[in-house]
Amino acid sequence: MNSLNGVMVVGLTGQTGAGKSTVSKIFASNGFAVIDADQVARKIVEKGTKCLDEIADFFGQGVINEDGTLNRRALAGIVFSDRSKLEMLNTISYPYITGEILRQIRVHSMKGEKLILLDAPTLFESRADDFCEIIISVLADEDIREKRIISRDGLTSEQARKRMNSQLDEEFFRSHSDYIIHNNGSIDMVNGISWEVSDKIRELFKEKQTPVVNVQ
């Protein structure tokens, strides 16, 4: 039996610093199982993994700590300064990421959790959008996002801008999403919109599960 039958995967993505985690928490509260692609990305580069070995082979031992773990700051310094190297990192890591995401989708499905939110900053780049029936993008103004990234990650303004500039532009998110949620400051407004969108998707899911009765 296909364990993915009856599953609806909703992709949540958007600009770095836009505040996806706020939206994700509302969906979780409204009964969605959540797969966090950031946690997946950390899992696939743990010490001793094949993905980490491939990264070290390409980028050198300078991105590996003495204890054999990934030196994230060193790797970030390389890839966010050179788009071609970022693309190479993506080429190495995305197959491992998508494989783990599919595994987690199957686990949720077998547990009867059929409404799944895939929280993925690089949803499109990793082609994980192929798994999704609905896509939501969270957007925010540049200056707001820069401040959030600096506060969240302890970066300089220049480092924050490099991360922002390494992403797809706002128009791409707008043209490839079913829902757009703006998060420019009002937490109550974002929470309210997120509840509304999650309710709409739950209703759509219920409608799809209702068998059609043919009347002769």
Rank of each mutant, 00 (worst) to 15 (best):
V213R: 10
F205P: 10
D153H: 11
R148M: 09
V213P: 04
D153S: 12
F124V: 00
V63A: 10
D67M: 02
V23N: 15
S93D: 10
A76V: 06
E46A: 13
N165G: 09
P211W: 02
A120I: 09
L86A: 10
H176V: 02
A160D: 08
H108N: 14
I44H: 03
D188H: 02
S194T: 01
S137E: 02
F27P: 06
D38R: 05
I135L: 03
T122A: 06
R174Q: 11
N183L: 00
T91I: 04
N184G: 04
T122H: 06
S177N: 03
D188A: 14
C132L: 00
N183I: 01
S175Y: 05
R152Q: 14
N2M: 09
L89D: 08
F205T: 04
D199C: 04
D38H: 14
L155A: 09
R127K: 06
S175V: 09
S137W: 04
I134E: 06
G6V: 04
S175M: 12
I149G: 05
A28C: 12
K47T: 14
I149R: 14
A33C: 07
F172M: 07
L52N: 02
A128C: 13
I64D: 14
R148S: 10
L204I: 03
K114F: 00
R106P: 10
S186D: 07
E142D: 07
N191W: 05
Q15D: 15
A41V: 04
I105T: 05
D129F: 00
G154S: 14
A37M: 06
G60M: 12
I135A: 01
V79P: 02
